[in-house]
């Protein structure tokens, strides 16, 4: 415990760096998943290949990906950009199938009625389809957020500043409290972001407040 109290600044610094690496991939995964999911839903064979690609992507162990990606995309291993891009890929792997499900959950009849009411395709998407898919999308984003925040720690093995550094340093110095602090901080950060997403969801989708959006 002494270690934790004396190193609050270190933990705080790593928490900030951690968040900076985690947030962009969550956002990117969400935004890119929308068009990709629409595209995937438009053709049966595309949907199958999206599902296959996702499980393939998710099976790639993260540490080797972090090391190898720079060779493919031209960033530095220690560059937070590298970690962020890798995590965006994992995020997409989770998010695209979730978004495809979300859009499929919107009844075709409702969309038909909207068209009949005179909604242009763009307006129909943003004002009818997207809000209706919202709860399922939110459930997907929440899973992506939690898993991304947890995965950022792996970069610690390579010396990319994040809470994962506490694991590597802690195991080397034999300070269990340091590792435990890293675990707790990661979980707290994930739950905090998750709670924020739930609040955000309630704010933009007030109609979901009553039944709640507790899909895992």
């Amino acid at each position: 415990m002494t270690w934790v109290l004396e190193n609050l600044d270190v933990i705080g610094g790593y928490t900030g760096a951690h968040l900076l690496q985690a947030l962009p991939p969550i956002l990117v995964a969400f935004l890119l998943s929308l068009p990709l999911a629409k595209l995937a839903n438009s053709r049966g064979w595309l949907r199958t290949s999206v599902t296959t690609t996702s499980s393939l992507m998710y099976a790639i162990p993260s540490l080797p990906l972090f090391v190898l990606l720079p060779g493919l995309i031209g960033t530095g291993v220690r560059s937070p950009l590298n970690i962020s891009i890798a995590l965006s890929l994992y995020g997409l792997a989770l998010m695209v199938p979730a978004a495809a499900d979300a859009f499929r959950s919107v009844s075709r009849d409702v969309l038909g009625s909207a068209t009949a009411q005179g909604y242009a395709p763009g307006a129909r998407f943003f004002e009818v389809e997207l809000p209706l898919a919202g709860p399922v999308l939110l459930a997907g984003v929440r899973v992506v957020a939690v898993s991304t925040i947890s995965l950022v720690t792996v970069g610690g093995v390579l010396g990319v500043p994040s809470l994962g550094m506490l694991f590597v340093d802690g195991v080397r110095r034999g300070i269990a409290a340091e590792i435990a602090a890293g675990i707790v901080a990661t979980v707290v950060l994930a739950l905090l972001i998750d709670a924020l997403l739930v609040l955000l969801g309630r704010a933009v989708m007030p109609w979901t407040r009553r039944q709640g959006v507790s899909r895992p």
Partner: peptide, 12 residues
């Protein structure tokens, strides 16, 4: 080393 050049431009 296939990565050395890219790294030099990137990180840090």
């Amino acid at each position: 080393d296939p990565f050395s050049e890219e790294e030099a431009e990137g990180g840090g």
